[in-house]
């Protein structure tokens, strides 16, 4: 038998994952998605309570949460795009110019793991001639 508590636990876990991710991640978009995940946890809460009480108040709440989250995403992603154009990175720690007088900037004590380079896209030859198979392509097939 699934009671309201089961839903509440799922919602709390989702909210907790979002909160932890929000506090620990450094990529702007990941942070923001974690904040959105917190909102989705809340939405489950409201839907579960609406079912429990047998009224639609919670459902209406959820609709408004979705709308507000969309507005927040709009403004935050526009800002992140602007910041990315300027700093060429999504790492929030590159934005620490504003801080207390006399406090040194935070720098990484150990460097971040290297980002694996993405494989190059296969080059298509012009039509009409059979491409010579390269070593990479044989692997893919």
């Amino acid at each position: 038998m699934i009671t309201v508590w089961h839903y509440l636990v799922v919602a709390a876990v989702l909210f907790g994952i979002g909160l932890v991710g929000f506090l620990t991640r450094r990529n702007m978009i990941t942070m923001f998605l974690c904040a959105e995940m917190m909102l989705q946890g809340v939405a489950i809460n409201f839907a579960a309570f609406a079912r429990y009480h047998g009224n639609l108040h919670g459902q209406v709440f959820v609709l408004f949460i979705v709308a507000v989250a969309a507005c927040e995403a709009g403004i935050a992603l526009a800002l992140f795009l602007m910041l990315y154009r300027r700093a060429k990175t999504l790492d929030v720690s590159s934005w620490q110019e504003l801080r207390e007088v006399g406090v040194p900037p935070t720098v990484d004590t150990e460097s971040l793991p290297p980002v694996p380079a993405e494989p190059a896209d296969p080059q298509l030859s012009p039509a009409g001639r059979k491409p010579a198979p390269t070593a990479e392509e044989t692997v893919r097939v």
Binding site: F32, L79, L98
Partner: peptide
């Protein structure tokens, strides 16, 4: 821009 970033991130959380 940095001010806006900090405000948005705090505010969303």
């Amino acid at each position: 821009s940095e001010a806006a970033l900090k405000y948005v991130v705090f505010g969303a959380g």
